Amino acid sequence: MSTDLDRSTVEEAYARWAPIYDVVFGAVFEPGRRMAMAQAEKIGGRILEFGVGTGIALPHYRRTNRVVGVDISEPMLQKARERVEKERLDHVEGLCLMDGAQMGFADASFDIAIAQFVITVVPQPEETLDELARVLRPGGEIILVNHLGAEDGVRASFERWFARRARKLGWRPEFQLARLRDWALKNGTVEMVTPRNVALGMYTMVRFRKLDVTCAAGGSVERVALAG
């Protein structure tokens, strides 16, 4: 089988995960979710939760925010819709079935784009990150929290060995921080904020701040980092 993920593999995997996702991963991922959401709340405003899944994080956003959730898995989104209705989450503007690499939002639509335990499992990570940057307003942030693969050593060797077997689960255990750094440099509209370890190093929170990209004299591009 392929060593990468395609859309059908991801959809099939998360259709299987949907009924049990909260039970299996709820408590395990809680420290990462808390840290990512605390950072999001420092900015506030209109929030895109990419990979919203079953909507497990939705009740924990302040009601002063407006939240739009996106996912590639219809069974996961159905769980999120049920949660929104049951818990009367009126700060949730909508839940959308979308491919992250081709989102239907206008440029600069959101103050924050948050992706919790998802960027390493989407079919096209770099294209998805390009889209998250596109829909973000200058000064806003992309906030990722994820397990990231080791750069070297025994764990790195194991993750490379496990990668092919993990594809049926919809995972990329070998996905490294370097891939995110390389994307930011290539994209050119964001700057990476120093990554932080979460839960004793089990996960990493990675932030990208959207730059104010303006055209300077002579047609060159001038990147201006915004305060904060």
Rank of each mutant, 00 (worst) to 15 (best):
K86I: 14
A106W: 07
D111G: 02
V84C: 13
A108H: 10
M98V: 10
G104T: 08
P75T: 04
R83N: 10
D99L: 13
S73V: 02
A80H: 12
R66W: 02
E82V: 08
L77Q: 06
C96F: 15
L58K: 08
S73A: 03
H60W: 05
V92W: 06
A57C: 15
R83K: 13
P59I: 05
R88T: 13
Q102Y: 09
K79P: 14
G94K: 15
R81H: 13
V92G: 08
V67Y: 01
V68G: 02
L95E: 04
M98N: 08
Y61I: 01
A101E: 09
L89D: 11
K86Q: 15
H91P: 07
H60E: 11
A57R: 05
A57D: 11
Y61G: 00
R62Y: 06
A57F: 03
N65W: 03
S109G: 03
G94F: 12
A108M: 09
E74L: 11
R62A: 01
R81V: 07
A108L: 03
G94D: 10
L58G: 05
M76K: 10
A108W: 00
G104H: 13
C96L: 15
S109K: 11
R66C: 02
M76V: 06
R62N: 04
Q78F: 06
Y61W: 04
G104I: 07
A106S: 11
E85C: 12
A106M: 12
N65D: 01
D99W: 02
V70D: 01
A108P: 06
K79Y: 08
G100C: 12
N65Y: 04
L58R: 01
T64W: 11
R81D: 14
Q78A: 14
P75N: 08
P75K: 10
A80F: 00
Q78S: 14
F105W: 14
D71M: 02
K86F: 15
Q102V: 15
